[in-house]
């Protein structure tokens, strides 16, 4: 796979292994993300996409392997250094993760208030700009609970954009949204890349969305990478899982009596 080091890579992942207890979720994967691209991590539910993302932003420590961001090993950093790097990262969570006790405007303003010495009036203007960017200019004084699912996701994006990050991570941006709202969000992701040249790492299982946004796709199955490349290249990989995924075929029933037995006794996790 194309995992050689280069100055063009904003993220370099090498031999990453992630485990929950004894359960290995990510198994020895390596890949690079190039500066300015939209890199999509595609895979079925439970294949470890969120887990991978949590490692990339440093919410979890991997069991093995390294993650380099702008050439610096993110996994080996002290907490203080890590929080410096994090100022250049934004993340959109699966459920938006807006702070429910604060208004949408305060949510977006929070990183600015905490990390910068800007005047309150400047912060207000910047907050408004970010909210306008995602089409929520009039909703600054609303509480998150008063917004629809799509609006919450967009507000989450505005908050992730607050500090003008270099990299934005998206965890299933279009999951749980109707096709029109989802398409709107995909457009926003493209727009962020075109306008601000941010690098985007998008985790998803929605093919429609991948078609719209992906520069490169990384196909993940059960913690292994099946392939990395353009959507066409991935589609043409001769692999049973890829074939099923693109044909929207269901998993064949348990391959052998043995795995069936294991499933019944709960010795292996299948989600």
């Amino acid at each position: 796979m194309n995992a050689e080091a280069s100055a063009d890579n904003i993220i370099e992942v090498r031999d990453l292994v992630v485990q929950y207890g004894d359960h290995t979720v990510i198994n020895e994967i390596s890949f690079n993300v190039r500066r300015g691209e939209i890199f999509v991590i595609l895979g079925g539910s439970g294949c470890g996409k969120s887990t991978l993302l949590r490692n990339l932003v440093g919410l979890m420590k991997p069991s093995k392997g390294t993650i380099a961001i702008n050439g610096e090993d993110f996994t080996a950093m002290k907490d203080s250094e890590r929080s410096l790097v994090r100022k250049h990262m934004g993340m959109c969570f699966q459920g938006s993760a807006l702070f429910n006790s604060m208004t949408v405007g305060d949510n977006v303003a929070l990183p600015l208030r905490e990390h910068t010495q800007l005047e309150e009036s400047t912060i207000e203007i910047m907050t408004r700009i970010k909210l306008e960017l995602v089409g929520l200019g009039e909703f600054a004084d609303y509480l998150p609970s008063e917004l629809s699912g799509g609006m919450k996701k967009r507000a989450g994006l505005a908050r992730a954009m607050a500090m003008d990050p270099e990299i934005i991570f998206y965890d299933e941006p279009s999951a749980g949204l109707d096709p029109i709202v989802a398409a709107g969000l995909d457009e926003l992701i493209r727009q962020m890349q075109n306008t601000f040249n941010v690098t985007s790492i998008v985790v998803t299982h929605e093919l429609e969305s991948v078609k719209m946004i992906a520069d490169r796709v990384c196909m993940l199955e059960k913690g292994h990478i099946i392939g990395i490349g353009s959507l066409e290249e991935i589609r043409n990989i001769d692999h049973p899982y890829v074939k099923r995924f693109f044909a929207r075929k269901s998993q064949p029933e348990s391959a052998s009596d043995n795995t069936y037995f294991q499933t019944m006794t709960g010795e292996t996790k299948t989600t």
């Binding site: 929080s83 807006l98 500090m163």
Partner: peptide, 13 residues
């Protein structure tokens, strides 16, 4: 549960 604690950490808070 709502990943708000994670959101804080990612923001460096």
């Amino acid at each position: 549960v709502a990943e708000e604690i994670d959101a804080l950490e990612v923001m460096g808070l």
